[in-house]
Write a protein that binds this DNA or RNA. Structure first.
Length: 872
DNA sequence: CTGATGATGAGTTGTATG
DNA sequence: CATACAACTCATCATCAG
């Protein structure tokens, strides 16, 4: 569903709501925040214009097909009325992209933001599309285009004039704007000047004291909207031109409308203006538990934020520039379902200007460098050559250099965030200075290489900003909370919670970079008493593992993290590929995990008194049909990234039968390394030589065993016949015979999806394969055998959080091998394997269920041989 | 092999100007 | 209203030294 983007832009398909917003939005003081109607209802005025040229019969035809009148008129206006087929396609496109014009911007009511189902359109037609019937809902004090534009322009010029006056009085322009936002457009220049002065002397140059947040937002949106409207017509024609594919609109979000950024970028509130009333209503789906908090760069390529927002339950992002919290800018968007009332900053608040943050630099700061704050702290810093060039450029002048040189130096200083450290000498920020600016404890990242520190810090949260948003949790979780921290980096979220005094009982942290994990771990050990579990790869956090964690800890209270921005950030010269980029696509894992967590979290009414929804409620809400685009991707996400775990998760997963084949080898006593490698290579590559082999893993057995097996091979076949072919192939027979082998086959089933079936992907590149072979006593009762196997299966299910895949079954050829049953369990790491095998549960189960009725058994494991990966 | 270093624009938005 | 201009951006790549 496209919502606020649609009413903020007039680009082709969303034109129906371009008008009527701007005029109301530019007058904050006149607006009533508590009335959702006017601000959330895009009004339409296209009727008159479009009606004139649209054939009534054609319109009626399409309306008869269930398309809203406004949509039909819009489509006709777009591509004419000659080609009905193309018209139909365009109308379908409108619907598919969620062209629901009714909802809106931040303060929309929950019902207005509820997903629109196509089937319901008929009921909603009048409300959503037909202006004639919406009078009761909409504030239409002024509805004419022209008068709206005039009002708008008049107010803008009035505003501009006042800003100009204030700037002439010596106030910075942004502060002048803030003052107008703060005091209203009606305030006199003197009042505004007083306001700026007051906030400056109060030590807060950026304080805002709005009576209503939304009005600010709308004000800026309104302006942007107008701009868009002005330059939108060209693009519109280009996109919906009458060419052969003129109305094909991609669904991947890459061509979505841009999300307008607020100006000033202050988010829902700032610490300095806590008195004003802030209110928003979240879409039903968005309610926790758990609370979640997602972050990414504000200046992402077009459409990215629209897509992200669509996934994250259509919550409007809170765009905040951290320059209002510290001395460095950091424009970021945050999507979260936290309450936004009663926030409070962490103390002490950091300095907000460079001179306050680094007083020592003051004496070297030239008068012609007006910077008061840094630009965004990035992952790279200026080279020594550059600072040397600057030093040389300035060295030749005894006093102030010519403006040309000033400009060059200033540009470089802004670009690289240079500070003055000596006469004519600039230098990049030190890592510890960046830590300070970003709100981390001193030496937080110390111990890793300098380059790594810059990289990690450049990628991290600004702690004060995040902490301010999270501060509402303090009173909700006096006993601490369980946190799922995705893409943790150096632990910005954890540091923020700690600085807020919120105890973290358990933190599951997912972070790819080892140095970052080290940084977080060492900070944790110094400051925390709770449990920290670090996971390297987000893809290892399967649905089953999440469920297991939830069972263990009783559910997550907060899911927090910012997904990789590499492919979104403007600094990336090479691969700014948007959300589908190699790194940034991990956002979908964030969504997958959050969404799964939302659905499965088992919090028995523990959140009821927090004003959130109970588990039952959220389940009901999630059963709502999702907007088409979301629904589409949900399916895609589940199939691509869903469970790869063989353990049963739900009855709905489609399974496929396979035949597992275990080969145990006794290698020649004095086999050389080369021969051993050749042997394994041969067996491993069999999957490429023969049909029917789905997966192979093999390695050197690491357990001493009475039968002197040295190597084990796991092969997965599509069916029994394929095994016979493999065994009869002279190519492999030689190896198997030469090294003395025993084999076991059993039937089992796994999830019918590429990853679990073929055991592909990172989950299967490394890890430990554990094989359990057993034959039961003839005297054992059928019941006791079944009970034993069921216990094992149950045990596997319970441990599914650290099992990649497990299969077990009854052996097909047990007369030959001597084993009647077998299981193969893949663990992501040796530690996980150890945890399983040396755990009390397993030992108990073994002793009580299997041991008493086992005639003989064999347990062995091998580390998945990287030979295979190298060959791949 | 790691770590340090330096060179490498595009995309987008806001603003000024005529 | 069109255009040019200015500003800014959670980075990647090749290369070299140790």
């Amino acid at each position: 569903m496209v919502d606020w983007a649609s009413d903020s832009d007039n680009d082709g398909k969303f034109e129906w709501d371009t008008d009527g917003e701007a005029e109301t939005s530019s007058a904050p003081a006149l607006r009533n925040a508590d009335a959702p109607g006017p601000s959330t209802r895009p009004r339409q005025d296209a009727n008159g214009k479009a009606n004139g040229s649209a054939p009534p019969a054609l319109v009626a035809d399409f309306m008869g097909m269930g398309f809203p009148k406004e949509m039909v008129l819009k489509a006709i206006k777009e591509i004419g009325d000659t080609d009905t087929e193309q018209l139909l396609e365009l109308l379908l496109t409108y619907q598919a992209i969620g062209g629901d014009p009714s909802p809106s911007v931040g303060n929309c009511s929950a019902s207005a933001c509820a997903p629109q189902v196509l089937e319901e359109d008929e009921d909603d037609d009048d409300v959503n599309w037909d202006e004639d019937d919406t009078g009761g809902n909409c504030d239409r004090a002024h509805h004419s285009d022209d008068s709206g534009d005039e009002d708008f322009l008049q107010e803008m010029s009035e505003k501009d004039e006042k800003i100009k006056s204030l700037v002439n009085m010596g106030f910075p322009e942004d502060e002048a704007k803030m003052a107008i936002t703060r005091c209203g457009l009606d305030a006199s220049v003197d009042t505004l000047a007083d306001s700026i002065f007051a906030s400056q002397t109060a030590g807060n140059g950026y304080s805002v004291n709005l009576s209503d947040y939304e009005d600010t937002e709308f004000s800026s949106f309104g302006r942007r909207k107008k701009t868009r409207f002005m330059d939108g017509s060209k693009k519109k024609r280009k996109r919906y031109g009458s060419g052969p594919q003129g109305n094909q609109v991609p669904f991947d979000g890459s061509h979505e409308e841009p999300m307008p950024l607020p100006n000033p970028m202050v988010g829902f509130s700032l610490p300095s203006d806590r008195l004003r009333s802030v209110h928003r209503n979240l879409p039903d789906q968005a309610f926790g538990p758990p609370f979640f908090y997602y972050e990414n760069v504000a200046l992402a390529p077009k459409g990215v934020w629209t897509t992200i927002s669509r996934f994250l339950y259509d919550i409007q992002p809170e765009f905040v520039d951290s320059k209002y919290f510290c001395a460095a800018a950091r424009k970021r968007g945050y999507i979260h379902n936290l309450p936004i009332e009663n926030r409070s900053p962490v103390l002490p608040t950091p300095p907000k200007t460079i001179s306050e943050a680094f007083p020592n630099t003051k004496r070297w700061w030239p008068s012609w460098d007006p910077r008061r704050q840094f630009n965004c702290l990035q992952t790279c810093v200026a080279s020594a050559k550059l600072t040397e060039r600057i030093r040389c450029a300035l060295g030749s002048f005894s006093d102030a250099p010519p403006t040309q040189v000033q400009k060059y130096v200033l540009d470089e200083c802004r670009k690289w965030n240079l500070v003055w450290v000596g006469k004519n000498k600039v230098a990049p920020l030190e890592p510890d200075e960046m830590e300070f600016l970003l709100g981390y404890p001193r030496n937080h990242t110390r111990g890793v290489s300098r380059t790594e520190r810059y990289r990690a810090l450049g990628n991290s949260f600004q702690v004060d900003t995040v902490a301010y948003h999270l501060s509402v949790l303090r009173d909700m979780f006096p006993n601490g909370m369980n946190v799922l921290s995705l893409f943790s980096g150096i632990g910005g979220a954890e540091v923020a919670l700690h600085r807020l005094g919120i105890r973290m009982k358990t933190v599951i942290s997912v972070e790819k970079s080892e140095v970052n994990r080290t940084v977080l771990k060492s900070w944790w050990d110094q400051t925390q008493t709770g449990t920290l579990i670090e996971i390297a790869d987000v893809r290892h956090l399967t649905a089953e593992r999440i469920e297991s964690f939830i069972r263990r800890f009783g559910g997550f209270d907060l899911v927090i993290g910012g997904s990789p921005c590499n492919n979104l950030a403007g600094s990336n010269r090479h691969h700014r590929d948007g959300l589908e980029g190699e790194h940034s696509a991990l956002f979908y894992d964030y969504f997958r995990i959050l969404d799964h967590n939302c659905k499965t979290i088992a919090g028995p009414n523990k959140y009821q008194n927090l004003g959130s929804r109970t588990e039952k409620d959220s389940a009901v809400h999630l059963s709502h049909p999702l907007p088409s685009a979301t629904r589409k991707v949900v399916i895609c996400t589940c199939s691509m990234l869903g469970s790869s775990n063989g353990a049963p998760s739900s009855g709905l997963v489609k399974k496929r039968k396979i035949v597992e084949h275990i080969i145990l080898l006794r290698a020649k006593p004095n086999i050389s390394d080369v021969e051993e490698k050749d042997m394994l290579d041969y067996l491993y590559t069999s999957q490429y030589q023969m049909r029917g082999i789905l997966a192979v893993s093999l390695g050197r057995i690491e357990d001493p065993n009475t039968e002197n097996f040295t190597h084990a091979v796991f092969m997965r076949f599509q069916q029994k016949d394929d095994i016979a072919k493999f065994q009869s192939s002279p190519y492999y027979y030689k190896i198997l015979d030469e090294h003395g082998s025993v084999s076991v086959d059993f039937e089992s089933e796994v999830e019918d999806d590429i990853i679990p079936l073929f055991r592909r992907g990172e989950d299967f590149n490394y890890g430990v394969e554990f094989m359990l072979l057993i034959s039961f006593l003839e005297s054992a009762s059928r019941d006791s055998v079944e009970d034993a196997l069921a216990s094992l299966q149950r045990m596997i299910s319970q441990c599914s959080s650290f099992i990649v895949q497990a299969t077990l079954g009854c052996c097909l050829n047990h007369m030959d091998s001597g084993y009647s049953h077998a299981a193969v369990i893949r663990f992501p790491s040796f530690d996980d394997f150890k945890l399983f095998r040396e755990g009390m549960e397993y030992k108990d189960m073994w002793a009580s269920k299997l041991q008493p009725i086992a005639e003989k058994s064999l347990e062995l494991h091998f580390t998945v041989d990287p030979v295979g990966n190298q060959l791949m």
